[in-house]
Nucleic acid binder design. Structure first.
Lengths: 144, 144
DNA sequence: TTTATTTAAGATAAATTTGTCCGAAATAAG
DNA sequence: CTTATTTCGGACAAATTTATCTTAAATAAA
């Protein structure tokens, strides 16, 4: 469904959010360990998330990553996915046709608009806050 | 959503079905043209669909691909996708965790089971017959 | 039987995604 | 100022997916 980059990015962002709610910066190394992701690859993804303004990065000792606490509630899963995978999950024909819409649909067009709309709604409605809180109180987990 | 291989496979199967309903075999070349897919790559996909028993292939002059007419109604979109992409779309954690279920869920587990169930139901409920008929009567298209 | 045609199969190549490595830049602390 | 730490950025490498090419095998028809 999502790319590996996106999977790592989502997990990392949730972890950073949990720590940020406790006013703690986290290092790349810690993130990669807690999220079970390759360090160097995770670095790249965090870089792009930082450029997208979803997370903040700080160099040097005591540096690391964090998320502005006020943002945690407004950031949606959709924003993270979009920052990493772009909008290719949300737009485009299910069979790869350039020209496919309600007036000139591919054979699966109608079937697809429904589930894609579901997916989109889900991503737009789930906040980073709720994901981070679930992890924080031990309801969910990020490893294994 | 689907791999390129799967997109080509679905389109090819629908096209073969339309022709088979008219009792006509179609060649690889014709399929690739009508479906706008790379010939050699399409050949590979058709090969695996033939091995899966979804389509029949015949060598030599007057050879080509066809689908047993009685099957067209029972073959579901799910079968085609499964034959090409396997079950990786239907199973597995949305964040790539090995261990992720209702008792020990990842942060997006509950959100995902819903839309995945939707997708699965959609694929299991749409028959090749209905897709082929839509194309045949000009309601849908496969090119561009 | 010979020939032309068509799919099968395996090797190879290109493109993309995933992942690694290393030096540069920033920066906190001694 | 120097040093240690941490992210940044670019080059590089491996793995996977997508795509091509060539030869073999099957087979219909002359």
């Amino acid at each position: 469904m999502f790319s590996k980059a996106c999977e790592y990015g989502i997990k990392a962002t949730i972890y950073i959010a949990v720590k940020s709610m406790r006013h703690t910066r986290v290092s790349l190394k810690e993130i990669a360990e807690e999220v079970n992701s390759p360090v160097a690859f995770t670095a790249k993804i965090l870089q792009s998330l930082a450029k997208s303004g979803i997370i903040d990065s700080h160099k040097g000792p005591t540096g690391g990553f964090e998320i502005e606490e006020s943002k945690i509630d407004t950031i949606k899963l959709h924003d993270i996915v979009h920052a990493i995978d772009g909008d290719n999950i949300f737009v485009g024909c299910g069979l790869g046709l350039k020209q496919c819409d309600a007036t000139q649909p591919c054979p699966v067009h109608d079937k697809f608009v429904g589930i894609r709309e579901n997916l989109k709604m889900m991503l737009q409605n789930t906040s980073l806050y709720e994901l981070a809180t679930g992890l924080d109180i031990g309801l969910t987990h990020l490893k294994r």
